[in-house]
């Protein structure tokens, strides 16, 4: 008490000039408790572990890829479509383009289907139906891709032949859907693989976007309805903008999955190293599929080439993520 008074008196006696000297802003600090410190230690450790794993994996891949890269040359690696393990030629252009083609087809199939499904479950379906559909979707997400691959190869791909035929007949205006000859084979194509991978990733997008959109504030939804909006109007003005970044996140996750899908591609595709823009025709490729098909019997040098290709896929995925994150950020309102 007495000390406090003394300080107060002293404070009143200070030079008036110093009272208006600029203040230094600080952030109040807090001494965390023991429990807090321990928990903090764990979280920091876990975060570091993730970081270290990524760095180690990257270093490993880079190191393993070196022999192939030096044998084929960096420029050749990215621009050539010739892949020959015996002469040490590893051009991944065709494979990279093939990967993008398959993943793009997969997204064209999956995104509209998944978003419609999510909206149907949340906004239109009776509660019981919605709940049933949710568990079916979750079940689908748990199916191993091997199952999809086998189903696609042995059963579904034949069903897609008429679809491919139809596309080539009616959407002739789109160059990708043109056929190079009358009697080409319409199975084992990028189209078939893309559709099957698309079906595979539908549950990912559905379940993530459904979760996010279900969080849309109900009272704001009511505002849209109360103004005479239709249900679709409400979805457009409230639910989609609200779920936007979450939906894009889900799509990205699925896209990454489609880029890296291995078994389904390996089982179905007829592997080529050229760029095949005729997506409906047999012959295509993807990095992951290539690795799955070749890794077992590869010479050490080709193995190194395959790892280099895998490394390139990693960089591609990373870039796609980065770009998408930019897009998400740009659209946010202050």
């Amino acid at each position: 008490m007495a000390v406090g008074d003394a300080v107060a008196v002293a404070a009143r006696n200070v030079d008036p000039m110093s009272a208006i000297s600029p203040q230094v802003p600080i952030r109040p600090s807090d001494r965390p408790s023991r429990g807090d410190r321990i928990f903090r230690g764990f979280t920091v450790g876990a975060a570091m572990l993730a970081l270290v794993t990524v760095v180690v994996a990257i270093l490993f891949l880079a190191n393993e890829a070196r022999p192939a890269l030096s044998s084929t040359g960096l420029k050749n690696f990215f621009t050539s479509t010739i892949w020959n393990g015996f002469i040490g030629q590893f051009g991944i252009l065709g494979v990279m383009v093939g990967t993008m083609i398959i993943a793009t087809i997969a997204m064209i199939v999956a995104v509209p289907a998944a978003l419609s499904m999510a909206l149907f479950i949340n906004e239109y379906a009776p509660r019981k139906v919605g709940r049933l559909l949710t568990s079916v979707v979750d079940l689908l997400a748990a199916l191993p891709s091997l199952i999809f691959g086998m189903w696609g190869r042995d059963a579904f791909q034949q069903k897609l032949v008429p679809v491919a035929r139809w596309l080539s007949d009616h959407l002739y205006a789109i160059p990708f859907f043109r056929l190079s000859a009358e009697d080409v084979v319409l199975v084992r194509s990028s189209f078939v693989v893309g559709v099957i991978v698309g079906i595979m990733v539908i549950p990912i997008i559905t379940s993530i976007s459904r979760d996010v959109m279900a969080q849309a504030p109900r009272d704001v939804c009511e505002a849209a309805l109360g103004l005479g909006g239709t249900r679709w109007g409400m979805i457009r003005t409230v639910i989609l903008p609200f779920g936007r970044s979450g939906i894009i996140g889900g799509i990205l996750l699925a896209f990454g999955r489609a880029l890296g899908e291995t078994i389904a591609v390996a089982l179905i595709i007829q592997l080529t190293f050229d760029i095949n823009w005729h997506v409906l025709e047999a012959g295509g490729s993807s990095v992951a599929g290539l690795i799955a098909v070749r890794f077992g019997e590869a010479t050490p040098l080709e193995r190194s080439g395959l790892i280099a290709a895998g490394f390139a896929l990693l960089v591609l995925t990373f870039t796609v993520n980065l770009i998408a994150r930019r897009i998400v950020k740009r659209g946010q309102i202050k």
């Binding site: 009272d219 704001v220 009511e222 505002a223 109360g226 003005t237």
Partner: peptide, 11 residues
């Protein structure tokens, strides 16, 4: 409405 509910994504 009883609780203010402007559209958060709009100006």
């Amino acid at each position: 409405f009883q609780k203010p509910n402007p559209f958060p994504s709009m100006s």
